[in-house]
């Protein structure tokens, strides 16, 4: 999005006065909407909207042979597709760079063994374990993609149900998988420690949370902070052009520590009280 000098100055002044162009304060998020179970043949899915930003996250679990170095652990794999629907700039290969940026952030944030109980994804040591394919589709791009993606991932993982399977060894010691005949039997993942991202965009001498597309186009670099429900910082990355002073970085981390847990709790309470009335995209 291209803005004129006047518009940029207006946004800059509004951030200085702590009353942004849509009336929010610097630490306020826009309205969020979340809905799970939107894709029928997935183990879990969620559609999350923050303001104009909209992402669709889908989790599929597949049985694979675990890696030799981690025989008793499952794995998680992220794939992000910046759909051309979100912006014509993403047509063809246009969205690949942004997608790989977000993907590497997610990979880092989920690499710690304390994030998810990866051993629960193991079915038979050395033979079978679940790999979670988390596929993220960016449908609309209205700023603050990192936060939207991470919250969508958390919601989709919360919604994920994985089938209970048993392994039987045949006469020649070959393992065979037996799937429970009752499809309602399955286990859910513990998503308590799954982090979410908070993006601090620097505009002038202040940082704002949940920037809109207009604000992003006059920001000077942003700081993506991964934070858990306990307020533990799991990941920090500076993205985009621009620089941060150590004190403003410290301020941002303190804010993340204060606000992050609230966002986690809000998301989980919304997911828990979600009703069966699903209208998906027709809403």
């Amino acid at each position: 999005m291209t803005l004129s000098e006047g518009e940029k100055k207006y946004i800059l002044d509004s951030v200085n006065d702590d009353c942004r162009i849509d009336g929010r304060q610097r630490n306020n998020y826009r309205l969020m909407q979340v809905e799970t179970d939107v894709i029928d043949h997935a183990n879990g899915s969620a559609r999350l909207r923050i303001g104009e930003t909209e992402v669709l996250v889908c989790v599929k679990a597949e049985l694979e042979t675990p890696k030799p170095e981690t025989p008793d652990r499952g794995a998680i794999q992220f794939f992000i597709d910046c759909s051309a629907n979100a912006s014509p700039q993403f047509a063809g290969r246009g969205g690949n760079e942004l997608a790989s940026d977000i993907q590497s952030c997610l990979d880092r944030a989920f690499s710690s063994p304390s994030v998810l109980d990866y051993t629960a994804l193991c079915v038979e040591r050395g033979h079978f374990s679940w790999t979670l394919f988390v596929d993220i589709l960016i449908l609309q791009c209205g700023g603050n993609l990192y936060d939207a993606v991470s919250l969508g991932v958390k919601a989709a993982l919360y919604n994920t149900v994985i089938a209970k399977v048993a392994v039987k060894f045949l006469a020649d010691n070959k393992p065979e998988v037996e799937v429970s005949s009752d499809p309602s039997k399955g286990f859910k993942l513990d998503v308590t420690n799954v982090p979410c991202f908070m993006t601090f965009l620097r505009i002038g001498n202040h940082c704002v949370l949940d920037p809109s597309l207009e604000e992003e186009s006059c920001g000077q670099g942003s700081l993506v902070v991964g934070i858990t429900v306990q307020g533990i910082v799991t990941h920090v990355r500076k993205v985009g052009p621009g620089s941060f002073h150590p004190t403003s970085m410290e301020d941002a981390l303190n804010t993340a520590n204060a606000i992050g847990p609230l966002i986690h709790m809000q998301l989980l309470s919304k997911l828990k009280e979600e009703t069966a009335d699903k209208r998906g995209f027709l809403r």
């Binding site: 029928d40 104009e52 909209e54 051309a84 629907n85 979100a86 912006s87 449908l139 609309q140 791009c141 209205g142 998906g280 995209f281 027709l282």
Partner: peptide, 26 residues
């Protein structure tokens, strides 16, 4: 079932559900 104008950013958009096939066009 469809929703015309599902997205604001595009000049035109539509979402259609035909049975269980779900498609978004902008």
């Amino acid at each position: 079932s469809c929703k015309v104008g599902a997205f604001k950013q595009a000049d035109g958009s539509a979402y259609i559900e035909q049975g269980k096939t779900k498609i978004l066009a902008t």
